[in-house]
Design a protein around this nucleic acid. Structure first.
Lengths: 208, 208, 208, 208
DNA sequence: CATGAATGAGACTTCATTCAT
DNA sequence: TATGAATGAAGTCTCATTCAT
């Protein structure tokens, strides 16, 4: 490794570490506050860096939001994709995505709360979340299991419904089995008949 | 009417008028800004009263939000109830509610934008919106047209989907016919079969 | 006095008083610091008002500077005009203006210092100062005592020279009689011959 | 030349080069901003070095200002001295200095702007500029062409007048011929009679 | 009740300066 | 010497809130 490269690497590592500190701190704050209320000096304090340091990484509140959004969206995509790797059935892939998402939210309501707050503001987040489902519902349609007129409307329905369940979780209105229920309803909305939808929605989830 | 009473009445009228000025101004501002960004100073200016006056009517930012929420929710309930007065079919009532709501949003995107911003913050708004649909889906179920396992999940689905369409409108992603489409999908989600759902969703709307 | 007027007057009086507090405080600060270094929170403290109050009167540092400039320029104009009221001779009016200005600076070096700092930044100040001399040198020219090619150059020379003497005063480089000396030199620059200039420049000043 | 010496020399050269980079960058910035607003971060960026590097050369903002002042004053002295080398007449030397200065300012208003900003803050600059004129007016006095009572007042007048013209140039208020005009007025201020002053002020300038 | 000047807490933002590499 | 991330003091600015009129 040349001295040049080494220097850059060290610098980058430090930069990357601080940046991650800030992103983690931001996510933590989003669990409590709306994205519009994130105070950059509070972010600094939470991350354990000084006030001015924040400005070496983010110019505005929205920059922070966008960065956190992207990070979360990417992490989620990767995770669901990994778990769905062995599943070919488009409808089932949708169900797994929806139910895993909800499960994750139940296991970590702070995270769920943060995600809700992020999704409220960061349209990019919603879009990114929609992105990784799009292929699944397309597959479902091609496989003849799903049948819907507008992909965009379908995606809007899917994403907003899942968020709606997340809100229920955070507000402690979630009931056991709601994940299966919403999955079934979504399949029906996407054109699957009740019996089939009920069956697919209640298949056991693959191991993580 | 005694002079005393008259004075009181006039006082009340004036009071009510000022309050309405403030509510209208707030709605106008919500069309532009998130509820968290409403500045009471700006509200006063928009309403044409002095900043101190605001405090005679609302103690906090959230008071304003809640009042506007309630006003809107009530107005919406009344409107939809009036239009639905002659409709007995529960499923059709749902469709009419959904489609009218969307139509209204399309006719006044500023109002739509305000409502989205209100709904983001004021959970009460969502609840209120859900309230007036609850009876309709219950009716649909009793009439044997709808079939769903959890009323709460169903309501969450309905409300969040409609909001999702409103967001699409504000962001100019709405396509003609999306209102019928979402109505149909929601009926399907609520357990109606495709053909029937398509038929009910596309019935002509009653006159306003 | 109607209640309406009374209210306005009371409000105005208070506003005017606070504004004057701020202007006075600003002048005091300019005696020490350059106009570019005036800190608005320091201004608040010096004026004995709270931080935010400053922003009810001035939006920026430059607003303060301009207001102080105008106030000073106006006060100076009035003062010199009053003293010169009985003097018809244009050249003598110039001399009186110059010498009084210098005298005032010697009597209040803090004021002189402030004025220097103001003049450095606020071109408007220089212009205003020039304004009230313009008529005098025009008179001198018409009376056949002064003779110069460019009025603007002449005014620039006059104003900058007086400021130059003020700087000397503040830096304690001023020598007794320099006021007469600079007045004579300026008359010569404006086309008067040495003997005449010496005589006019050394005439006794009118009483204040 | 030993490798050791060579390294030192290269080091010195590099050091000198970096310093010059910084001085040039500072001058460029002074053309835009007042000396009080020079940000060392910006200086570093403009010079293409890292912010920490600045501190290897200058301890404070004022250090930079002083260094640039000195550099400019020295350069100007040299230039005028060179051009005046063959001129014995003190009054003419003054005229040449004044007019060349103005000419240079007209040819490079950015430089003029920088110099004004420097002169505002750095009294040393004014002093240095005065320094190289002092000998000339002394010569003029000894030659019997100039006649003034106070050398210091005369120098103040000279320097401030020239700066006043530079300001006029930067503000686009300069008129052709103003250089000759101001030169003539200054000679008159220094005691020369009108006809003679007009003649000396309008002599053709020596070639550069 | 209405007014609007004053308040001051609390955010934002910049930048000179330090320091480990 | 050069680098540039980190620091934190110092200033800017906003706005909910109070209060005398």
């Amino acid at each position: 490794m040349s001295s040049e490269t080494e220097k850059l690497t060290r610098g980058h590592k430090k930069k990357a570490r601080t940046r991650q500190l800030l992103l983690d701190a931001a996510l933590k704050i989003y669990a409590t506050k709306g994205a519009g209320e994130l105070a950059l000096n509070e972010l600094a304090q939470e991350a354990g860096v000084s006030n001015g340091t924040v400005y070496n990484y983010f110019r505005t509140r929205d920059d922070v939001l966008e960065a956190v959004s992207m990070e979360q969206a990417e992490a989620l995509s990767h995770e669901v994709a990994r778990i769905n790797a062995a599943v070919a059935d488009g409808a089932e892939r949708v169900v797994i995505g929806v139910r895993l998402f909800i499960q994750k939210a139940r296991n970590d309501t702070a995270w769920a709360s943060a995600l809700i707050n992020i999704a409220r503001y960061a349209q990019g987040m919603r879009t990114a979340l929609a992105g990784y489902v799009r292929a699944d519902i397309q597959a479902g349609k091609q496989q003849g299991q799903l049948d819907y007129a507008s992909e965009d409307v379908a995606l809007g329905l899917l994403v907003s419904s899942v968020i709606s369940v997340m809100i229920a979780i955070v507000e402690d209105r979630y009931q056991t089995g709601d994940d299966v229920m919403i999955a079934q309803m979504l399949l029906q909305a996407l054109g699957m008949d009740k019996q089939h939808a009920a069956e697919v929605a209640s298949r056991p989830l693959p191991r993580l």
